[in-house]
Design a protein around this nucleic acid. Sequence first.
RNA 1: GGAGGUGUCGCAUAGUGGCCUAGUGCGCCCGCCUGCUAAGCGGGUUGAGGAUGAAACCUCUCGCGAGUUCAAAUCUCGCCACCUCCGCCA
Length: 424
Amino acid sequence: MIDVRLLRDDPDLVRAAQERRGESPAVVDDLLAADESRRASIAEFEQLRAEQKQLSKQIPQAQGEERAALLSRTKELSGQVKTAEAAQGEAAAVFDVLLKSLPNVAAAEAPPGGEDDFVTIEEVGTPRDFAAEGFEPRDHLELGRLLGAIDVERGAKVSGSRFYFLTGVGAQLELALVQLAMAKAAEWGFIPMIPPSLVGPRAMEGTGFLGQAADDVYHLEKDDLYLVGTSEVPLAAYHSDEILEADSLPLKYAAFSPCFRREAGSYGKDTKGIFRVHWFDKVEMFVYTTIEESYATHEALLAWEREWLDALELPYRVIDVAAGDLGLSAIRKFDCEAWVPTQGKYREVSSTSNCTEFQARRLNTRVRGEDGTRPAATLNGTLMAATRTIVALLENHQQADGSVRVPAVLQPYLGGRQVLEPLA
RNA sequence: GGAGGUGUCGCAUAGUGGCCUAGUGCGCCCGCCUGCUAAGCGGGUUGAGGAUGAAACCUCUCGCGAGUUCAAAUCUCGCCACCUCCGCCA
């Protein structure tokens, strides 16, 4: 959630941000009204409560008639306090629901508009010209079959559509990618983490995934637990209800975890292969810092993502995601999209968001500094999403005979193999 | 899943209905004293919210939530977490 004071002091700024997202600025006025009545009800409750406490204190010393008078007045007040307290709770709840539904204030730099209104920041590397090389590129599914690496038929048999088995060298490839990614992250100063991928409602709600994105989340009703779509969720909740010392920042975590997505409403999209699946493994970077540092940290996260893709020798582009496509928590988001030869397009393989104080305020994570305590800033960025990375690696590094070249950095993690060969 | 126990300020503890505006010790911060350090002395030290130009001020916060009462850290009920033992299990 955003700062209530910002809402009161500069509502026009919030309205403008709503418009950049293509959302209604009217909620701002609803919120201001709700804040008004919330504060009025607080004042009323507190005034009654103060009187009740003050009179109540005199009772033990009072005698006879005076005591009876006090008792009858406090008795009356007791009821009024209860009513006022309930009213105050209700007003606070109304306000809270509205405030939590309001997205973070989109950065002025974020391109206005929706999904298609992104701005390309840079294209890195050159997609291969397979025609010039004299062969038709195979898609990752066919390569996966040739290599004995991916089995989607049995994935569907066992778990349904959008599930897969990684087999043989495919399984080894994922493990190699995970190891390399975790090793790199540790080098960059991230603390390696393996977090729970089942979380309670607070963590899910606090990270903003129970808003518009709720349909995309798996929920285990019997236990009221959620399967996370990203380890951003447990990492953001990790320090909930904590006060971090300013000189301990930045706190950088890199987590390996499975990710689960219902992919509701994506029927018919990316149905072939393992590009869009209900479950995949991912190494995610997550940073706690101050709001002032967050902008530079966001650039750093992007730089690490790029270093990763450079190391894997993949052609990709970096885009500045438009305000309407930011999600609830972010003020700005950069995506890295790797070239997918058989689709002839760049497709998202990583994404980094600056959530400023939005998640920290919901999850009650604060920083104690010279000027008191205030909410922390949180940022996240994908380092390695296994399935999409495998798609990009196989397709971009394939050779005419169906073998796949292994980038040099990955070779030590694959037993020194330089090439993945098709099964006989 | 069953039985028992515990939950108070950063840590350790005191507190069985009003004298709790939650005490004490440790730690930490500021000051005094002292060649230096230690000791000693004095003061400060949970967090959130409301009001205000800013304060003084007021409210909430003893795991969480409801209840009893004029009044709850204290009594009642529910929930959660942790510990011990049993069962089951990777």
